[in-house]
Amino acid sequence: LKHLCRKALRSFLTTYQVLALPIPKKMKEFLTY
């Protein structure tokens, strides 16, 4: 489930946009992995 969620997010968010999100650092590391 997490993998699918990440894949969906990565499909419409660039790494830069993910880093700009107001989310915890650990979550950013997970999303930009």
Rank of each mutant, 00 (worst) to 15 (best):
L1S: 02
L1Y: 05
L1K: 05
L1V: 07
L1T: 03
L1W: 08
K2F: 08
K2S: 05
K2Q: 03
K2W: 11
K2N: 01
H3C: 07
H3M: 05
H3S: 12
H3K: 11
H3N: 10
L4Q: 07
L4K: 11
L4T: 05
L4D: 01
L4R: 12
L4W: 13
C5V: 12
C5H: 02
C5D: 01
C5F: 11
C5N: 01
C5L: 14
C5I: 14
C5R: 10
R6I: 11
R6F: 07
R6T: 07
R6A: 10
R6Y: 05
R6N: 03
R6K: 12
R6V: 12
R6W: 09
K7S: 04
K7Q: 08
K7H: 01
K7N: 04
K7A: 06
A8H: 02
A8P: 03
A8E: 00
A8C: 04
A8G: 01
A8W: 10
A8M: 06
A8L: 12
L9K: 12
L9T: 10
L9E: 05
L9G: 09
L9F: 06
L9N: 02
L9S: 08
L9R: 12
L9Q: 08
R10K: 11
R10D: 10
R10F: 07
R10G: 04
R10C: 09
S11Q: 03
S11Y: 13
S11R: 13
S11H: 06
F12L: 12
F12G: 02
F12W: 01
F12P: 01
F12A: 09
F12N: 00
F12R: 00
L13K: 09
L13T: 05
L13D: 00
L13Y: 09
L13S: 02
T14W: 11
T14L: 10
T14Q: 07
T14N: 05
T14D: 09
T14H: 10
T14S: 07
T15Q: 01
T15N: 00
T15I: 15
T15K: 08
T15M: 13
T15W: 15
T15Y: 03
T15S: 05
Y16R: 12
Y16A: 15
Y16S: 14
Q17G: 12
Q17S: 09
Q17T: 10
Q17L: 13
Q17N: 11
Q17V: 13
V18M: 13
V18C: 10
V18R: 15
V18I: 08
V18S: 14
V18H: 14
V18A: 14
L19C: 06
L19T: 06
L19V: 07
L19W: 07
L19G: 07
L19Y: 12
A20Y: 09
A20V: 14
A20T: 06
A20F: 04
A20I: 15
A20C: 11
A20L: 13
L21E: 09
L21C: 09
L21P: 09
L21H: 00
L21G: 06
L21F: 07
L21Y: 00
L21D: 10
P22A: 15
P22G: 15
P22E: 14
I23K: 03
I23D: 03
I23E: 02
I23F: 07
I23C: 05
P24Q: 04
P24R: 13
P24W: 15
P24T: 03
P24C: 11
P24A: 09
P24D: 00
K25S: 04
K25P: 05
K25M: 04
K25Q: 04
K25Y: 02
K25V: 05
K25H: 03
K25F: 03
K26L: 06
K26H: 03
K26W: 14
K26D: 05
K26S: 09
K26V: 09
M27I: 12
M27S: 00
M27W: 15
M27A: 02
M27C: 04
M27L: 13
M27E: 00
K28M: 10
K28V: 12
K28I: 15
K28T: 06
K28P: 01
K28S: 06
E29V: 06
E29C: 02
E29R: 06
E29I: 05
E29A: 05
E29G: 03
E29D: 10
F30C: 01
F30L: 03
F30Y: 05
F30H: 01
F30E: 02
L31G: 01
L31M: 04
L31W: 05
L31V: 05
L31Q: 00
L31D: 00
T32C: 12
T32D: 03
Y33P: 01
Y33W: 12
Y33K: 11
Y33M: 15
